[in-house]
Nucleic acid binder design. Structure first.
Lengths: 213, 213
DNA sequence: TCGATACGAGACGGTTCCGTATCGTAACGG
DNA sequence: CCGTTACGATACGGAACCGTCTCGTATCGA
């Protein structure tokens, strides 16, 4: 027993500076930046989740493996933190009408879809959903659920205001409104997302219907 | 050089019986069934693509590794064949109107989405798209492209008949029509697909619009 | 019957990665 | 100055898997 005497804290997550002030050399914040940066660079280079090993991350970051293991117990925990870190909060919805809110919410998803890191996480998370429950849960809680909740809230506002059809299930309404943009984001990597007017087109088309008058 | 004398055919794909009739013991068709069956069972058990090793497939199939390597040069080729094999042809479209065709096409996707193997492939393929070009290409050619083409064809028919809006991009029309069903299939694993009336609801909602009158 | 090939099983060397431990050095508190 | 902790680097044992090869056996054509 060599390491049982040195009570390494099980320190989940990157260095949280609270706690009792450490005595020796403090954790290097630069190392942490380098680690996160390395993961993001590898993701942007199209490295698959399977090829994303701790050793490769350490090499890319110019960091010793121990520096990673000092912060996270394993690859899984690191990636959960990466997912957690990359998601920015939803934009505030201040539109005068529910339609403006819908458009800005869809535009938020469009802009997220333009970020390669973001797409990488979606796709990788999907493939690991069944065999990696913790990533699934983190992804759902941090990404999927807030978006669904936001849309649901806007839709409910529209229904209550009598401007959205009340004969349709709210869930169905939500899916009809955000399905197309997510389709472009996740499934069709060649589909264009650059047009800033795309969300307006989509929402108006969904609201007005696709049938000719 | 021991194996250079025995000219093993590079035999890509599972045993194609054409060719010159082999001389020795023929390939066991049962072994092939067992191999495909094992892959499909593992997929249904939620085993991730990364955990899907040749050794595990062989063990699950009750088959020697050599029996697999005799048919495919590596795991990649095997999985490409699995993807190729699992996709059934699109249903014939004989509906009297473009709306019927739309509904039946969407219903086809709904029924595919109920099959766990099918969902597994979608999700796994998505995560490997960047780092595994051959799987990406096979998946696109065998799954994505036919479906897009089918929808595009129906939509074009509707536009030409003057029943679908002609002021919208055809691509956008397609995405609006199939986005919701794909969203349920790929992203929300808890979303219900069982209702056989779902495609009709979706298509009619998309055609009529979501705005209250 | 005999040569050829396939079969299941598994040994084999090689590779990659895991997570730990150990260097010598560097940065903090007392 | 000294004890403590982190740093980058790297060695280590163990595990999993790759793709090849070799068993003894089974099944075909000639």
């Amino acid at each position: 027993m060599t390491s049982a005497d040195t009570p390494l804290k099980p320190c989940h997550g990157p260095a949280t500076e609270q706690d009792a002030p450490r005595r020796g050399r403090p954790r290097s914040e630069a190392a942490e930046h380098a680690i996160f940066g390395a993961v993001e660079k590898l993701m942007e280079d199209g490295v698959g989740l399977a090829e994303l090993s701790i050793e490769r991350i350490a090499a890319e970051a110019g960091v010793g493996k121990a520096t990673i293991y000092r912060r996270w117990p394993n690859k899984e925990a690191l990636l959960v933190d990466v997912v957690d870190r990359l998601e920015e909060p939803m934009p505030p919805l201040a539109g005068p009408t529910y339609r403006d809110d819908l458009i800005s919410a869809v535009d938020y998803m469009r802009r997220r879809g333009l970020i390669k890191r973001s797409r990488w996480i979606v796709k990788s998370a999907l493939g690991q959903m069944n065999s990696w429950p913790e990533l699934k849960q983190t992804y759902h809680e941090r990404v999927v659920r807030p978006r669904r909740e936001l849309i649901r809230q806007i839709v409910r506002r529209g229904v209550e205001a009598g401007e959205l059809r009340s004969d349709l299930d709210v869930e169905l309404l939500c899916e009809m409104l955000i399905g197309p943009i997510l389709l472009r984001t996740v499934l069709w990597d060649d589909a264009p997302l650059e047009d800033p007017d795309l969300p307006r087109q989509m929402i108006d088309a969904a609201l007005d219907g696709l049938a000719a008058r």
